[in-house]
């Protein structure tokens, strides 16, 4: 998935977003099974339209996760049309929990640094 902030012109991931699209997809699909278009809408809605990307780029990511066993896919009829619906597997749930823990750790560490954090205290002490 090629994500970028809506305010930015660039269409590639900043490095610190590596792994984030996977986490977002796993989280949203763990709430309910979805097909590609539905998932893209869900990402936009859940992120308040902050994440913007070429929508077709979601499929390589979905295929990668399916190949890795984190997702399973089935072509079924939805709303009178046949679509490929993705759902999170047990392995995917475990992977999501792991990625979520890592992400929380990164966020809290960066937050501490941005707020002056422990390093500043250590220096002045």
């Amino acid at each position: 998935m090629s994500t970028s902030f809506a305010t930015s012109k660039r269409r590639t991931n900043p490095d610190f977003l590596n792994g984030v699209p996977e986490l977002v997809v796993l989280e949203l699909l763990s709430q309910r099974p979805m097909y590609g278009y539905e998932l893209v809408q869900a990402i936009k809605e859940a992120s308040g339209e902050t994440l913007e990307f070429g929508e077709g780029c979601i499929y390589p990511l979905l295929h990668k996760l399916a190949e890795r066993g984190d997702l399973s896919s089935r072509r079924i009829d939805v709303g009178g049309r046949s679509r490929v619906v993705y759902r999170v597997t047990t392995k995917g749930h475990k992977q999501k929990a792991q990625s979520q823990a890592q992400w929380s750790q990164v966020v809290s560490s960066v937050g501490r640094i941005l707020q002056g954090g422990k390093y500043e205290h250590a220096k002045t002490a």
Partner: peptide, 11 residues
């Protein structure tokens, strides 16, 4: 959907 070149590259 995205331009063909990008989609091919990503895939």
């Amino acid at each position: 959907l995205g331009d063909q070149k990008t989609l091919v590259k990503k895939s």
